[in-house]
């Protein structure tokens, strides 16, 4: 049996056989040479090998945490607050479906001239015609469908006691008897007396 010569040899491990124990013992001898002179301190650091092993494990865990966190948390997180800053740009990048009336009015000037004289002057095009951004991007190949006036007009003008009383409403069954609205009304300029009048020069 080998005699106990160093503090780390409690478990009867030979320093020569365990390279880890050997390096730890070596470093501890270098580091604590002065401290080890007093017997009491020597007793305190008797099992220093265990503490150093524990410290090594914790250090590895800390490094793993820092590396993992850097890999998992998105770069822009916390740019403006507790969220991913890039999310704002991603949401803003979504393509639009409704082109907006300014785009429509850029080409369809004849309809604008008609519309601004009647009571539908304030109505934007996509209220009735639906989303037309694809048509605006490619007017030649994407053609919008004409809306069905019996459905479209009734949505706004069908009588309902919850609608504001000043809003023009009809009970379509009594009013037209199933005829489509554009038989008599021109949707862009709905007043019947105005029908057929020239768009320009006409008085409101």
């Amino acid at each position: 049996m080998t005699p106990i010569t160093t503090p780390c040899d409690l478990n009867h491990r030979s320093l020569a056989r365990f390279p880890v124990s050997k390096t730890i013992a070596l470093s501890q001898r270098l580091l604590f040479r002065r401290a080890f002179r007093t017997p009491r301190v020597r007793l305190l650091f008797k099992d220093i090998e265990h503490l150093l092993r524990l410290a090594a494990v914790m250090l590895i865990a800390l490094v793993a945490f820092v590396v993992l966190r850097a890999a998992v948390v998105p770069k822009s997180f916390g740019q403006y607050g507790h969220y991913r800053g890039d999310a704002i740009a991603e949401l803003a990048a979504r393509p639009v479906a409704h082109a907006g009336h300014e785009v429509c009015e850029g080409c369809h000037t004849d309809v604008v001239d008609q519309k601004k004289l009647g009571r539908h002057a304030g109505l934007h095009c996509e209220v009735c015609h639906g989303p037309q951004a694809r048509h605006a991007d490619d007017p030649a190949s994407v053609k919008p469908l004409l809306p069905d006036t019996t459905v479209i007009c009734a949505r706004c003008h069908e009588a309902n006691s919850a609608k504001p009383h000043s809003f023009p409403q009809v009970a379509s069954a009594d009013h037209s008897g199933g005829l489509s609205c554009n038989t008599c009304h021109q949707p862009h300029r709905p007043k019947i007396e105005d029908r057929g009048k020239p768009a320009t020069g006409a008085k409101k």
Partner: peptide, 21 residues
């Protein structure tokens, strides 16, 4: 989203765009 993709391009929201009144 208050049509965030529209208001950041200077457009109004889709609901406000099509509100007839």
């Amino acid at each position: 989203s208050l049509c965030y993709h529209r208001i950041t391009k200077g457009l109004t929201t889709a609901c406000a765009e099509v509100c007839p009144t």
